[in-house]
Write a protein that binds this DNA or RNA. Structure first.
Lengths: 184, 184
DNA sequence: TGCACTTCTTGCAGAGTCTGCAATGACTGC
DNA sequence: GCAGTCATTGCAGACTCTGCAAGAAGTGCA
């Protein structure tokens, strides 16, 4: 999409996503500002690369497909890997190179983009883990919430690491989870 | 501060922080909207309870005070506990009960409030940990970033847990870190 | 009392994000 | 040629947030 391209290019030129206005992006993409918001719900959304945004329900469903006798931490690891691969992080199309550069220069953008999702997703996952562990609801045990939080930390660490040190994301996620499972 | 009180009360009555305008809050607190922004940099800030916002530098300094022979994960645990206690989470003044209720009903608010800080702080901490581990900069090793992410996950899990299950935050943080250190 | 100084508050104008609505024009199928 | 759909747009408006300058109120001092 040309709008995204214009947005990323301008953000890089102007020193960050916050230094660019929707009007400038629209002008560069040769559309009206109103049309911009037909394509993106927010300005930030134009800086997001993920072709497929996972819903909380999809992620929970993914966890349900894991065998019941698999250790929970391993099951969660596989879910995270599934999310990461389907989210297209491993696509290094030239088209996205500028976007990768933008993320490298403005790491906070990454967090901002996920914010909306993250909280709801984490809560849903923690609930499902609590169920899987056979116990009651979340709240009686720290473990489910902690595991989910650590899993997202692993994903973030892997993404972060890959930004300066290109390696397959799956490998990095495995490594991070090894550390978590064995103990920090 | 009465502004905060009005903000929290209105947010609870209207079904969330986003359903209240600065104008409404100002009116309820008997000030002008302009004055609101003299006290708070953003609307969200009026829903924050933390009397002391840690800067990234302070947190890094806190880590530096830990003995060099202490296991790094333990050192980080103590830093997190120091942050939590000094941030006033254990103050259960009646004044804040409504705010606790607001957090319970709108958990995403908690994340939103920290967003600005979190990223910068995490990066700085990871850097310091990389130094402490004697190695090079962050980027050559997954561990520092992962440890910081997991530590914040522990803090969040503890806060989360306490919201439905009042116990001293220090205990919960210890428990969470025990899980992390022993392995998930 | 009168004068300067500071601090708090406020109004105003304006930038910027985002939404709802209605109009226009292009394209599609019949 | 006509109806229906869809993308695009303009317009008006709500809302957050900022800079500036003007008042109001209090404080210290001669």
């Amino acid at each position: 999409m040309q709008i995204r391209g214009a947005a990323v290019r301008l953000a890089l030129e102007h020193g960050g996503p916050d230094e660019v206005t929707v009007e400038q992006i629209s002008q560069a993409a040769d559309i009206s500002p109103r049309t911009f918001f037909n394509y993106f719900p927010t300005k930030d959304a134009a800086f997001s690369l993920e072709p497929h945004q996972w819903t909380a329900e999809e992620i929970v469903a993914e966890l349900r497909t894991r065998p019941a006798d698999e250790p929970t931490a391993v099951a969660v690891r596989e879910v995270v890997k599934a999310m990461a691969s389907a989210a297209g992080f491993d696509d290094f199309a030239e088209e996205w190179e500028l976007l990768q550069e933008l993320y490298r220069r403005h790491p906070e953008l990454f967090l901002r983009l996920r914010m909306d999702q993250v909280d709801r997703t984490m809560a849903a996952l923690a609930d499902e883990i609590a169920v899987r562990l056979g116990g009651g609801a979340v709240g009686t045990d720290l473990y489910p919430t902690l595991l989910v939080g650590a899993a997202f930390a692993a994903l973030q660490a892997a993404e972060n690491h890959r930004r300066t040190n290109p390696r397959p994301l799956d490998e990095l996620i495995d490594e991070a989870f090894d550390l978590l499972i064995k103990g920090l």
